[in-house]
Nucleic acid binder design. Sequence first.
DNA 1: ACGGGCATTCGATTCAGATCAAAGTTTTTG
DNA 2: CAAAAACTTTGATCTGAATCGAATGCCCGT
Lengths: 262, 262
Amino acid sequence: MNTTDSKEEENESSRIEAKLEEPPVKICPHNPSVSCASCRLNELCLPIALNKSEIHQLDEIVERNRPYKKGDHLYRQNDGFKSVYAVRSGSFKSYVVSDSGVGRVTGFFLPGEIIGMDGIASKHYANSTQALEHSSICEIPFFQLEKLSHQLPNLQHHFFAIMGNEIAKDQQIHTLLSSYTAEERTASFLLGLSSRFAQVSLSPVRFLLPMTRGDIGEYLGLTVETVSRIFTALQRKGLIEVNNREIELLDIEALRNIIGAN
Amino acid sequence: MNTTDSKEEENESSRIEAKLEEPPVKICPHNPSVSCASCRLNELCLPIALNKSEIHQLDEIVERNRPYKKGDHLYRQNDGFKSVYAVRSGSFKSYVVSDSGVGRVTGFFLPGEIIGMDGIASKHYANSTQALEHSSICEIPFFQLEKLSHQLPNLQHHFFAIMGNEIAKDQQIHTLLSSYTAEERTASFLLGLSSRFAQVSLSPVRFLLPMTRGDIGEYLGLTVETVSRIFTALQRKGLIEVNNREIELLDIEALRNIIGAN
DNA sequence: ACGGGCATTCGATTCAGATCAAAGTTTTTG
DNA sequence: CAAAAACTTTGATCTGAATCGAATGCCCGT
């Protein structure tokens, strides 16, 4: 999509390398001290609602892969489904490519969020997912997650909740795409990002967009130009301040009012 | 939405009645012979992949409510989440109503399909769901489903798959809404219905739409007029035959080609 | 059978956002 | 460090679908 062929080659090879060095390292090479028990995301991610011993068991099945460079793929459309992934740091986007070459972004993932659940039913991933920046991931082999869920009712319960949450979120987007204007979509998107950043203890009013305007447009069903124009318009109205990828929300109440009628 | 106040009153009271007559009748009043084991949908619905004894255990927790009349609500937005539902016969639609009164349909449900998973995470249903025609339902109290899933790995596995399927489906709709034209959306919708009818052994080429043009429009992010015009246009091109709610797909290949480029 | 209320269709017009075109800016890379 | 590639912004124009305005048809209850 946005990457050249040669870039893709590199990514592909580094990805394969990572797979070859089995058995997977349990401790993240670039931050060996992180385990689920000590991860700052454990209140947000899978371990939520698990007790100490349960977290330890979960820890056992989590594979902490080497970090992903910008553009590296976690998996590609139609790859066999094997794992779900929890973002540890950085960010990812999922997208599908049509025969006509037009890509459509189906989701963005920030730390603590789970990637890959679209593959559970069909056993093949329905989209491709790549890193938007230097990022790290916890890979959770789904077969083992199921087995462990069977032993730990709390984990089963929580994973049902995570999937239910994904379903509810997807339906909100359905509503957004089927009835919101470009400005409403954009405001809603910014507010959504804001609260997701807040969840990981980042500023909800000032943040860096990990994705391009084009990515946002594909996600929201708009063109790059429209996204850019709406950003400019919101800035002119004094609701946000834009500097490249850096966004500051100046008037959250007003942004909420934009989507308030819906 | 489409029902008058007085109609709503009726529905509401009948619904409350149904809840009052606990303990729930295990055998459907209007068709006492149906159990999961004998249900013609059991290859499609929850019992899939369960053995005879497991199906019997599932049967124990399923509540077969009285039938729902057209317009009756299964639940309403923000009601406390208690159960998921499997459609036994008829059809349902889910919708959200905005403050501004504009409703948006978020889904249609045919026999064998599961309703209500959007409430699992938040413990409150994110939408309202009502019958589009005289319909019957199997209610599955979620707490008991979880408990049983914990005992039956096959059930746990299958429910993960059902939820994963819902997630994958929702993401397809995301793509549809963010990049398809009105004609592409409509063609895709008709083909989707067609294959869902086929799954329950109904004709995939000739069927009755259980929903109005308005419902379809809200679901696809189009207006009633546009849906109507597209139907007319597809008929003029000889791809479908429309008579009120009755649809015949005359050229499925051509319909596929409409969305083929995507 | 009939009247009233939805649901559907169709035509005319408008408009939000796409498309087309091009310059400017930031990031990547050899 | 400079060239190239990728991304962003702005302006002009176009267009698909919304909106507005009716007329007609169908279904439901009495």
